[in-house]
Design a protein around this nucleic acid. Structure first.
Length: 292
DNA sequence: CAAGACTCCTGACGGC
DNA sequence: TGCCGTCAGGAGTCTT
């Protein structure tokens, strides 16, 4: 079975970049919810009045969350403080700006003053959106942006040493570093020559900088080609698949030769997730010696 | 603190 | 051909 591909940081970044010029400056003329559980807050009943009349002032992202800033609107009395329309695409969510307000699998749609619609579709229904005054109402504690200034080798070295966790689930933990998912963790660990089962506090001090560099390089390379599309799920808002899947070194390549050394890529399960590894490029951690 | 189990959902896929 | 069970997967929650 082909692995699923969920939007991770490069895909969300691509989506935000593409919809930004179509959304910033547009006024919301209405809202419609098609699947109640997609909306985290406010209540479905309160949504339309809350967002209607507000203008989208900014489109950005934090980790895998997309955020649309909304101004105070032109309500009587000069409007109120701004709001955020924030959401997570999870497995199969998509954000589109188009004429059709209710395409297949639509979960929520927002009318725009140019006659088009901002549409959230989601086959799997795991995605969530929310409208809040402060992001911390719905965003969990997130680690640093891997492409931001605070994420670097020295930071990572200290952070790895402060915990005792397997690298794979640690890098997937959004409170450790924000934005990595299954694909890019596998790719970054291979690029850094580290096995996903290595314990974080046993990673050599000199290996932290290359790992940080590998994470950044993989993300930037993926963003440069609009993310990864492995199946029918992820498409850019323009409808195009990403192209980074063509550059995968390990992800989805179980049984195929490692592009670095030729040894077959092996697939294992780590923390309930399919994990791809080259056992030559990524030596397994020494097994804990059994007591005699 | 770390890690495993369970949940939410659906389409794809394997087996017969 | 078609039915049906199984599976993947992000992240929150609960348990070990």
């Amino acid at each position: 079975m082909l692995p699923r591909v969920m939007p991770e940081l490069p895909e969300v970044e691509t989506i935000v970049r593409q919809i930004r010029p179509q959304l910033v400056g547009r006024r919301i003329t209405g809202a419609r919810l098609h699947w109640a559980r997609t909306l985290q807050r406010p209540t479905p009943r309160a949504l339309p009045a809350l967002v209607t009349g507000r203008t989208i002032t900014r489109a950005w992202r934090r980790g895998k969350y997309f955020v649309l800033d909304l101004d105070g609107g032109d309500r009587e009395g000069g409007g109120d403080a701004g709001l955020h329309l924030v959401g997570h695409l999870r497995m199969s969510g998509r954000l589109l700006v188009q004429q059709d307000a209710a395409p297949e699998h639509v979960r929520a749609s927002f009318g725009l003053d140019d006659g088009r619609h901002l549409v959230f579709t989601d086959v799997r229904k795991f995605g969530r959106i929310a409208v809040v005054r402060a992001l911390d109402e719905v965003l969990p504690a997130l680690g640093p942006e891997p492409l931001g200034e605070t994420f670097d080798g020295p930071w990572l070295r200290v952070a790895l040493a402060a915990r005792r966790r397997r690298l794979k689930p640690l890098l997937l933990d959004q409170s450790f570093v924000a934005g990595l998912g299954n694909i890019y963790v596998d790719e970054a660990l291979h690029a850094a020559g580290l096995h996903p089962l290595c314990l974080s506090d046993r990673v050599a001090r000199h290996a932290a900088e290359p790992l940080a560099a590998a994470i950044r390089a993989v993300l930037l390379a993926a963003i440069a080609v609009e993310g990864s599309s492995f199946d029918t799920f992820y498409r850019t808002p323009a409808g195009q698949p990403g192209r980074y899947q063509d550059d995968f070194r390990v992800y989805g390549r179980d049984g195929l030769p490692c592009r670095t050394c030729g040894r077959p890529i092996r697939k294992l399960v780590v923390a309930q997730r399919g994990t791809h590894v080259c056992t030559r490029c990524q030596p397994a951690p020494r097994a804990r010696r059994a007591k005699a």
